[in-house]
Amino acid sequence: MRTAAAILRKDLLLELRTLETLPSMALLSISTFVIFHFGLNQDSLSGQLAAGVFTVTLLFAAMLAINRLFVAEREQGGFDAFLLAPVDRTAMFVAKAAALFIFMVALELVAVPAFALLLAPPRLGHSLAGFVLLLVLADGAFAVIGTFVSALAVHTRARDLIGPIIGLPLMLPALIATARGIGPLLRANSSGSPQLKWLLVLALYDLFNALLAVGLFDYLIEE
């Protein structure tokens, strides 16, 4: 656990000092909202359409972070150093997934207000609690699957291509659940609480992927 905390601290410090990933993610999400505004020719979105636009935007921003997640380790010999150290390899997975989760939460601190401001979905304030709960679970899926895919892709030659094409289908079930869960919350007549079904699906999918990734991660960083 201490190893994981050390790696996480290193990653967050690196991001704070270089500001490489997070500003790009925030900018990308705002640009995507602008593109959707023009593409759909709508000043405000509601219901399932709003949910879809928001989920897709989050996904694209997540892809940026996922592509960058292990690049520093590979380019600056972090992997070799980690493999030489007498520590549990799962620590690397836990730390990277936690870092990705924190990145996603930080992104949403910008993206949710921007979404509310630019595309004005109705009832967002009213159903904020359920909305946040769904986002946290979705971030869990992004973090777990993203870390796994990133570790898989970082040693391939075309890692910027391989990561997204493997990651997208694997994340689809989580995206379906997130979009379907958020959709009813953003309707004009929303009750304000999300359907239990989608919360449960997301939580189980997170858990399932976390177990699978923890079990298999060791094989990905072996030399």
Binding site: F148, L152, A153, H155, T156, R157, A158, R159, L161, I162, I165, I166, L168, P169, L170, L212, A213, L216, Y219, L220, E222
Partner: peptide, 30 residues
């Protein structure tokens, strides 16, 4: 099908045969 379409491109872009086999096995299990 979309997921499995990425299996061969992934293998193709890993040069070391041992790593290729190991990563492909991890992919196939997930």
């Amino acid at each position: 099908i979309l997921l499995y379409c990425t299996y061969q491109p992934m293998r193709f872009s890993i040069e070391d045969p041992e790593r290729q086999a190991r990563y492909a096995a991890v992919f196939s299990i997930v």
